[in-house]
């Protein structure tokens, strides 16, 4: 079996959403928590891309932050290169090998810093190079690699377009020479033609440096283009996880099928669809049983009370009673 870069086992993350202590005491309320991520397990092989897809509030961005240690799991464990993540992040030599690319190119670069300092920050933080000349050369090389000019380092972020900023963000992420990149909706703030440039660049870099990606997106078409493996999330859980091609060719979980049906596509000129009704329930008070049952056309009594477990068929793990019972 190939090397596993990142592995999550039964990871759960709760957030407290109670009101401040004083107000809570006065009104006699109990603490309230929101389960953003619920018992999630996956692993990512070296040099491959695992994508997580889902609608807002499904917990995909929380997983992105868990994966780089910005949050700690409430329970369960994340391992990086075989070591517990917190232990791995305590060592600069391992921490250097993971980095992140963000969604909003206007918020992810410090507006008061020159681009050369933004890109050089990880180099300086990890002490990878010491002489000013070496750092400048390396920054120039990185900027060239992502399709900018070395001289662009002198400028400030506001002098660049959204797509160029995302290139700067990628150059910064690469500057610590990482193996593993978490990409949190890296193109959702960009126009489509720019999105194509960035996605192509990310694929090129992956091949060139053997990078491993955890790719988070709400856009199924983008995910299809980028992923080797794919996890579909709904209300904090991964409901279907398997090889990307298999999932797109023969999705089993009713939610994944709903998503595929819902996406407007260029091939559908003039087509009239019957959209599936309902909305994502609040994660503060998720429905009992299978959380998808209120919107699921296949739901029965069992789905309303019993949480489905993952069953693996043809290398695809699906959490659905209907699929397990052969009703789907």
């Amino acid at each position: 079996m190939a090397d596993i870069v990142l592995q999550a086992e039964g990871v759960t993350r709760d957030f407290e959403v109670s009101r401040p202590l004083l107000q809570r005491m006065l009104s006699g309320e109990a603490r309230r928590t929101l389960r953003a991520v619920d018992d999630v397990s996956f692993s990512i092989e070296k040099g491959t891309t695992l994508s997580l897809v889902g609608e807002s509030g499904c917990g995909k961005s929380t997983i992105a932050r868990l994966a780089v240690g910005l949050y700690r799991p409430s329970s369960g464990e994340i391992r990086f290169e075989g070591q517990p993540l917190s232990a791995a992040r305590a060592q600069a030599a391992l921490r250097r090998r993971m980095n992140m690319i963000f969604q909003d190119p206007y918020a992810s670069l410090n507006p008061r810093w020159r681009v050369r300092d933004i890109v050089a920050e990880p180099i300086r933080a990890f002490g990878l190079l010491s002489s000013a000349k070496d750092i400048a050369d390396r920054v120039g090389q990185l900027l060239t690699q992502v399709g900018l000019a070395a001289a662009d380092g002198e400028k400030y972020p506001h002098e660049f377009s959204g797509g160029q900023r995302q290139r700067i963000s990628i150059a910064r992420a690469l500057s610590s020479e990482p193996d593993f990149l978490v990409c949190d909706e890296p193109t959702s703030a960009l126009d489509v033609s720019v999105q194509a440039q960035i996605l192509n660049l990310m694929r090129d870099l992956q091949q060139q440096f053997g990078l491993t990606y955890l790719f988070i997106s709400h856009n199924l078409a983008v995910v299809r283009h980028m992923s080797d493996r794919l996890g579909v999330m709904y209300l904090g859980r991964i409901v279907e996880l398997g090889a990307g091609e298999t999932l797109f060719r023969a999705a089993r979980h009713p939610y994944m099928r709903l998503l595929l049906e819902a996406i407007p596509d260029l091939a559908m000129v003039g087509r009239t669809r019957t959209p599936v009704g309902g909305e994502v329930p609040s994660p503060i008070a998720p429905p009992p049983g299978c959380t998808f049952h209120p919107r699921c056309p296949l739901a029965n009594e069992r789905c309303r009370v019993e949480k489905p477990l993952h069953a693996v068929v043809d290398g695809v793990a699906v959490a659905c009673h209907a699929v397990a019972e052969g009703r789907a």
């Binding site: 932050r65 780089v68 240690g69 910005l70 992040r89 600069a92 921490r95 250097r96 993971m98 980095n99 992140m100 963000f102 969604q103 909003d104 918020a107 992810s108 670069l109 410090n110 920050e121 990880p122 933080a125 990890f126 963000s169 910064r172 610590s176």
Partner: peptide, 13 residues
């Protein structure tokens, strides 16, 4: 809450 702060946290500053 901005992402540039998160970027700095990820590299462990």
């Amino acid at each position: 809450g901005r992402e540039y702060v998160m970027a700095a946290q990820v590299i462990g500053l």
